[in-house]
Simulated scan of single mutants.
Amino acid sequence: MRKILYILIGPKGSGKTYIGSQVNKNTDIKFLRVEPIWLKLAPGENGWETVEKEIDKEFQQHSKVMIESLGAGDGFN
């Protein structure tokens, strides 16, 4: 099965979570919020690896997954 990852990019407060929630509710695309994943990281834990694992988990049940990102390299999405 072909897997597609969509990324919503925009500044904080621009509506990424709202749009992702609406997409999740009204389409077959699973919206995964990644900011809570970053906020739960333990000191020294690899955030990118943790997010990748969560995306892979979603791909086990969904062929299309959407995440949000600030588009900045600070690691907080």
Rank of each mutant, 00 (worst) to 15 (best):
E54S: 02
E58F: 04
K40L: 05
E54P: 00
N24P: 05
I19A: 15
G20V: 09
E49W: 08
D56F: 12
D56A: 14
E45C: 05
E58Y: 09
L41W: 12
S63Y: 03
T50C: 00
E45Q: 15
L70V: 04
K64R: 11
D56L: 13
V23Q: 04
K12N: 09
G13P: 14
K57G: 00
I37D: 08
G10Q: 13
L41K: 08
S63P: 00
T27S: 15
K57A: 01
K53R: 12
P43A: 05
F31K: 07
K30V: 13
K40Y: 07
S63N: 07
L70F: 12
V23C: 06
M66S: 04
N77P: 15
V65Q: 02
D74M: 04
N46M: 01
I55W: 12
T27E: 13
M1W: 11
K25E: 15
F76L: 15
G15M: 08
S14G: 02
I55D: 03
N24G: 03
E49Q: 14
T17R: 01
R33Q: 14
R2I: 07
K57D: 06
G71E: 10
R2Y: 11
K3F: 11
D28W: 09
I4G: 02
N26T: 11
K53F: 04
K25W: 07
G47R: 10
